[in-house]
Each structure stands twice: as structure tokens, then as C-alpha cells.
């Protein structure tokens, strides 16, 4: 089939909300765009384990410790699902990970901020996961099948993440004066970075909006950000805490909350690698990967030896048939 017709079939599928599957023809740019977005999403999950993992050994109760471990582990799983989705597009996990370590691939800037007190774990769950969920719910309808399916599974598993975060803050907000202060402090520090998670304003873009046209992305940055702010501005009342924005107020006409200006200089600097923890996050990931190299090699060497020794029929093969 000539390229022109293939492209027409492809666009027709997108138009009719038919998912694109790995072996379907797709424009190169669509594939590239997807590989970039999905792998960066995967990196965000994996790097996102670090600021929280930081508090696993210090979690203040056994229940909180177990929850936090389970949550960080879920993120490893989510990273894995997403790396798998990029593999359906012909990019190996190793290539993808190398791009992270070399600095070529980005991840969500939010994880370049430090976790300084226990309340930060609550704030991450409530605000950061809350922002992520808004994006991820939208991405369940993304046009590429494997990505959409990974997102459905991730959304199902993430439903407890935001709730546990809010619960941590709720307990602190009803606790001692020091705990209340800890809670407010965390909100003050995480509020603006979590708004930045949605990316630059729509008006800052003159770029033709290919991601929307291809239905990889289904809502604009500003739409999603507004949705998030409207949600959080109400929920914060339950905590009896405030959000650090004097301009945050309900606009009856718009039926949305108005809010103040994001510090875009900070946003771009953190994106470009100048955040407080960019360096240590990548170093931690690179270290884990490099120090794991001999383990991965040993497992391969052993599997090969065993294959030579006994060309095995895996147990259960017959029953499976």
C-alpha cells in the first residue's frame, strides 16, 4: 500500500477512536513521539521511587512503613509496564534506560525536589500523585493500545496512593502543633512544583499540536491544571491548611479557581537539570544500574549454562497445551 493510503488508514482509525496496535502501520513521527513520552513517563515512575524511598527506613509506624514500601514498589511495577509499552515500539529497555542515565531523556521535574520531612510523603501522595492521576486517567484513552492498557492498570493500582497521602496529612493536621507545622510546610513547598507538573501554559506554544491530533494526549496542559487546582482547593479545606497562593480564589463567573503566576524560570531550570536533586537522582539510578551489571550478567551466564546442560521442557508445558 502506498504511504499516502497507509497514513489515511491510520488517521481514519484515530478519528474513529480505534486503538493503534504495535504491528499496525504508523507514521515515524507518531512512533518517535510515543517512545519519548512513554519512556519519560516510565522514568518518572522509577526516579519517583527515590524521594519517597528516602523515607522508607524512617517511616514513623509499621503501618506507614508497609504502605510506603508497597507504594514505591507499585511505582517500580508501573515503570516496568511502561518500559514494556516502549518495547512494543521497538525500543529496548536498555536503550531507554541509557537515555535516562546519559541525560538525554527527561522525567517529571517534580522528583528533583527533596523530601525534607515526613509530611512530604503525604504531600507527594496527595498533590503529586493527585496531579499524576489526572493525567493518567486521561491517558487511559490514549490512541496507542499498549500505552492505554498500561495506563488502565496503573490507574487501578494508583487509586490508593493519593488516599494514603491525604490520610498522612489528615493525621498530621489533627496532631500536635509541630505536626501541623510540618504539614503546612510540606504543602508550601510542594504546591507550586505540583502545578508545574502539567507543563507550560497552552499559550506559550506556537507548536502545532500533533499529540492532540493523534490523540496521544487528550486534554491540554491548562485544562488539566485547572481541573487539579479546582479539586485541591476544595480538599485542602478538610485539612484546615492553606495553599501558598494569595491569588487563589473562586471565580463564580468562570466556575473555576483563579490562581497566581507560576515561577516559569524555576520550571525551566529544573527541567534543564538545575533542580535541587537532579544530580543525585540520576547518580542514584546510574549507581544502581552499574552495580547491578554483574548480577544481570551472572544470571544470563547461568541460564546459558543450564540450557546447555539440559535442553529443558519447562514444567507445565504439556498442561498449557
Amino acid at each position: 500500500m502506498p504511504i499516502h493510503d497507509l497514513e489515511k488508514t491510520f488517521l481514519d482509525k484515530i478519528e474513529r477512536e480505534i486503538k493503534i496496535e504495535p504491528r499496525d502501520w504508523m507514521p515515524d513521527a507518531y512512533r518517535k513521539n510515543l517512545v519519548r513520552q512513554i519512556s519519560q513517563h516510565a522514568h518518572s515512575e522509577i526516579v519517583g521511587m527515590l524521594p519517597e524511598g528516602n523515607w522508607i527506613t524512617r517511616a514513623p509506624s509499621l503501618k506507614r512503613k508497609a504502605i510506603l514500601i508497597a507504594k514505591a514498589q507499585d511505582e517500580a511495577g508501573h515503570g516496568l509496564y511502561l518500559y514494556s509499552a516502549t518495547e512494543t515500539l521497538g525500543t529496548s529497555r536498555e536503550e531507554t534506560i541509557n537515555d535516562l542515565h546519559s541525560g538525554k531523556a527527561k522525567y517529571s521535574s517534580i522528583f528533583n525536589y527533596p523530601t525534607l520531612c515526613w509530611a512530604d510523603i503525604g504531600a507527594i501522595g496527595w498533590l503529586v500523585d493527585g496531579a499524576a492521576i489526572i493525567n493518567q486517567v486521561m491517558l487511559c484513552r490514549t490512541s496507542y493500545g499498549p500505552y492505554a492498557r498500561a495506563m488502565v492498570r496503573i490507574c487501578r493500582e494508583e487509586s490508593f496512593h493519593q488516599r494514603q497521602g491525604f490520610e498522612i496529612l489528615l493525621v498530621l493536621s489533627r496532631g500536635s502543633d509541630e505536626q501541623k507545622a510540618m504539614c503546612q510546610d510540606a504543602l508550601n513547598r510542594w504546591w507550586w512544583p505540583s502545578l508545574m507538573m502539567f507543563g507550560p501554559r497552552d499559550s506559550d506554544s506556537t507548536h502545532s499540536d500533533q499529540s492532540m491530533k493523534w490523540k496521544i494526549k487528550r486534554m491540554s496542559n491548562d485544562e488539566l491544571r485547572q481541573k487539579f487546582i479546582d479539586m485541591i482547593a476544595e480538599q485542602v479545606k478538610v485539612l484546615g491548611m492553606t495553599l501558598p497562593d494569595p491569588d487563589l480564589k473562586w471565580n463564580a463567573e468562570r466556575k473555576h479557581y483563579d490562581f497566581g503566576e507560576i515561577d516559569w524560570a524555576e520550571f525551566w531550570n529544573v527541567v534543564k537539570g538545575n533542580g535541587p536533586c537532579n544530580k543525585q537522582r540520576i547518580e542514584a539510578r546510574t549507581k544502581a544500574w552499574d552495580e547491578g551489571a554483574w548480577v544481570r550478567e551472572a544470571a544470563v551466564a547461568y541460564a546459558e549454562k543450564r540450557k546447555e546442560k539440559q535442553p529443558q521442557t519447562p514444567k507445565g508445558a504439556l498442561e498449557a497445551a
Partner: peptide
Amino acid sequence: SEWCGHGPVLEQ
């Protein structure tokens, strides 16, 4: 639990 986020390969 100190391994969480630092393992040699994601599956492990």
C-alpha cells in the same frame, strides 16, 4: 527495604 529503588534490575 533499603533495596527498594536500587535493585539490579526492575523485576528483582
